[in-house]
């Protein structure tokens, strides 16, 4: 790769842990892998968990630590969704790479260099079922000289025969204090000023996804300079400000259809993403539920429609119409209007 101007490197890459022991919060995984480094014995592995918890980082780190910079190129094959990974690639490229035998070579410069190669399949849940099936036999036949690392978000999308051939590791979402210690470290390195409110906002909007937190932080730092407030972070993250969500709810409570219509049009022209709106709308209910007068039945009705609207949005339905329907449904539930349509 061409030399990188240091400043233009994303912080996510810059602060990616280089060694397995630096990976934050995933204690079991780290323990197993450090063991692997000592014994150089390694099963096939399957890393799964939500985004931004360190799966790719761990896989890359262990590969680098096992082989060192020189052997890395010849011993590790990294494939992800941006490469074509259809069944043909599995049958040719992966198989060819897996079939090559390697010598043990012995220890080189502090790296154990065990006598096998590693194939890292990142974002493996986007592989087709056929391609996964084609891998089954390959994994077994060449298990002497090749180890596979699968990385995915949803383990349910990995077919059972593959999953059962691997040691599975679940990566858990980062807790708030682990995340903030990492953020503090980056802030110190980059010379940023964050107050405590900004810290808590950052961890709440990133929801345990460290990559997202760092990206927001970098975005805010680039846009607003070295002192960052909670408001700046929200504007960078694309989270909808609370008052906009509150306004929509208030308009639904009022029972006035025109008011709700106006509020929904406003949300659309402000450019707020509706899927985000739906999830924040839903979160809002959790908060007001305890202190408020909304009955369980009302909540259930509202949530049902929220879920339907979300599915429709995924299918590509129009944002305005869906949000309007959600608002009208919420209004009917909150104002005790009849839920069934009378003129069907």
């Amino acid at each position: 790769m061409a030399p990188v101007v240091p400043s233009s490197q994303p912080w996510v890459e810059k602060y990616r842990p280089k060694q397995v022991k630096d990976v934050a919060h995933q204690d079991e995984v780290v323990r197993v892998l450090t063991n692997t480094l000592e014994t150089t014995n390694c099963p096939h592995m399957l890393f799964y968990g939500p985004p931004g918890t360190g799966k790719t980082t761990t896989a890359l780190a262990i590969a680098h630590e096992l082989f060192g910079p020189e052997l890395y190129k010849s011993r590790v094959l990294e494939l992800n969704a941006s490469d074509d990974r259809g069944i043909n690639v599995v049958r040719t490229k992966i198989k060819d790479f897996a079939a090559v035998a390697v010598g043990s070579g012995g220890r080189q410069g502090g790296h154990p260099c065990p006598p096998y190669k590693i194939i890292i399949l990142d974002e493996a849940d986007s592989m087709t079922e056929d391609a996964q099936n084609a891998l089954r036999r390959t994994m077994e036949t060449y298990s002497k000289v090749t180890r596979f690392f699968f990385i995915c978000n949803y383990i349910s999308r990995i077919i059972e025969p593959l999953a059962s051939r691997c040691a599975k590791f679940r990566f858990k979402p980062l807790s708030e204090d682990v995340m903030s210690s990492r953020i503090v470290h980056i802030c110190r390195e980059e010379g940023l000023n964050l107050d405590s409110e900004a810290f808590s906002t950052l961890s709440s909007i990133s929801q345990g996804d460290l990559r997202r937190a760092i990206t927001y932080l970098q975005g805010a730092a680039r846009l607003f300079g070295s002192s960052i407030s909670a408001k700046d972070l929200i504007s960078v993250s694309g989270v909808i400000p609370q008052d906009a969500v509150q306004a929509l709810l208030a308009s639904c409570r009022s029972g006035d259809f025109e008011l709700a219509n106006k509020e929904v049009s406003n949300v659309i022209s402000e450019g707020y993403p509706v899927s985000q709106m739906l999830s924040q709308f839903c979160q809002l209910f959790e908060v007001i539920v305890e202190a408020n007068d909304i009955s369980d039945e009302q909540k259930a009705r509202i949530c049902k429609r929220l879920a339907e609207a979300d599915k429709c949005l995924v299918d590509g339905a129009d944002e305005y119409l869906q949000l309007m329907d959600v608002a009208s449904n919420t209004m009917r539930a909150l104002c005790n209007m009849p839920m069934e349509f009378s003129y069907e």
Binding site: R212, T215, V236, E270
Partner: peptide, 21 residues
């Protein structure tokens, strides 16, 4: 037009700029 149709993975790699009407 609408960032709900852009996957989270792509969004999180970009600096998002919301342009309101």
């Amino acid at each position: 037009n609408s960032s709900s149709k852009v996957t989270e993975a792509v969004r999180s790699r970009c600096l998002n700029v919301r342009i309101n009407a």
